[in-house]
C-alpha cells in the first residue's frame, strides 16, 4: 500500500458549468420564495413552503458547493441524518403548542 498524501481524497475536476447551474437553481428558488412573500399567504402554510424550499437549497449547497456528493457516502451518513433528527426533535417540541397559542390569541 503506497503512502497517502495529506487529505487523501482526490476529487475529479468538476466542470465550472455544473456549479453555474447549481447557482442558477439557488437564485431561482430564492425568486420563488420572494414571490410567495409578494402574494401574501397564511403564516403556517407560508412557513411550511418556505422551509421545504430552503431545505432543497441547503441540499444543493451541501451536495455541490460543499462537495458532499463527491465525498465517501459514509460522511453524509454521519452528518445529515443526525442533524435532521435533532432539528426534528426541536420542532416537534414546539410546533403544536405554537399553533394552539396562536388560535387562542386570535379568538
Amino acid at each position: 500500500m503506497s503512502n497517502h498524501t495529506e487529505g487523501a481524497n482526490v476529487h475529479p475536476e468538476i466542470p465550472a458549468k455544473t456549479f453555474a447551474w447549481v447557482w442558477i437553481c439557488l437564485v431561482f428558488i430564492t425568486g420563488i420564495e420572494v414571490y410567495l412573500a409578494y402574494i401574501e399567504l397564511e403564516p403556517t402554510l407560508m412557513l411550511g413552503i418556505l422551509l421545504g424550499l430552503s431545505l432543497i437549497k441547503a441540499a444543493l449547497i451541501m451536495a455541490w458547493f460543499m462537495h458532499l456528493k463527491y465525498e465517501k457516502f459514509s460522511l453524509t451518513l454521519m452528518l445529515v441524518p443526525s442533524i435532521l433528527f435533532c432539528i426534528a426533535m426541536m420542532a416537534v417540541y414546539i410546533f403544536w403548542d405554537a399553533v394552539r397559542l396562536a388560535r387562542m390569541r386570535s379568538l
Partner: peptide, 22 residues
Amino acid sequence: ASDTLTFSALLVAYTYSRLSNP
C-alpha cells in the same frame, strides 16, 4: 454540524414565537 445546531436552536425558538403570536 455543531454550529448548525446552534442556529437551529435560535431559529426554532424564533419560529415558536413567530407562529404563536398573531
